[in-house]
Amino acid sequence: MDPYEKRKEVRRKLRKLEGLPTLPPIVQRLNTMVEDERVSIGQIAELIEKDQVITSKILRLANSAFYGFPRRVSTVQNALMLLGINVIKILITTSSIFEILHKEDVGLWEHSVGVAACAKILAEKVELKEPQEIATAGLLHDLGRVIEKVAFLQEYNQIIEFIKKEKKDPLKAEEEVLGINHAEIGAFLMRQWNLPERLIEAVEAHHDLSKAKEFKKEAAVIHLADVLIHARGYGESLYKKVPPLDEKAFKILKLDFSFIKELFFKLEPKLYELKFFTEELKKETEGM
């Protein structure tokens, strides 16, 4: 099929959320509550706490090293105050996707949590507000790849083959097969789910900074974090080599290259914690 037609088909399927895990029923109620100014954090926490599975997932993510809070986050109210309602909403919306991710593709899961941790360090260094939101964008940046695997498996396998046999660039392979790349798929779906534009742009532009309009710094952080995690060799993605770096990221962030070494030293302890976290998840999945 011609890539343009294919692109239309993919978007149609995504719009209908065909083949995707259903969103937890709590999401809709949460959305209505968040929009209502009279609703307090306590009331939102109460709603979430009614769902024990979601509650334990949120607390676990809130306590993992990519957010890096020194204090133990032990209640939903606590998590809401530290992470903010935006992040909590995203974690709930994407909880089933992330479950698939760490069960089916540990390499990509590790890559994603690594990028989240790295993005948080960068966001703090350049003083972006709500660094935990940027970490969450890092967690989601390859969401499109998970979607390809879940909802377009046949095409996904073809993409892998193109990369392996014909040594094609992963982005080009996606565009040829699906008419759309994973950054666009992720952003498209995030829009469908009404997630904040700041995170959507960061995901959408993480391989092409010119796509960022309002949130250039956020996009530059995710782009740089993605390249640095590939360079460090933590986790796995379709890139077996370090992906291309847009040097403009340094300029956009007013970041001096000399920070990179310091960053690797700051990042390494986090990567250890994340590895222990992933191993724990793996053991639980295997035990199920």
Partner: peptide, 28 residues
């Protein structure tokens, strides 16, 4: 193993900024 992996990940890369990142990683 780390150094070998590093070489592999940067194989064929000529972008000077990326090569600087590689050097920094090696020092690290």
């Amino acid at each position: 193993e780390e150094l070998e992996g590093l070489e592999k990940r940067f194989e064929g890369i000529s972008d000077p900024v990326l090569l600087n990142i590689k050097e920094v990683l090696k020092e690290f």
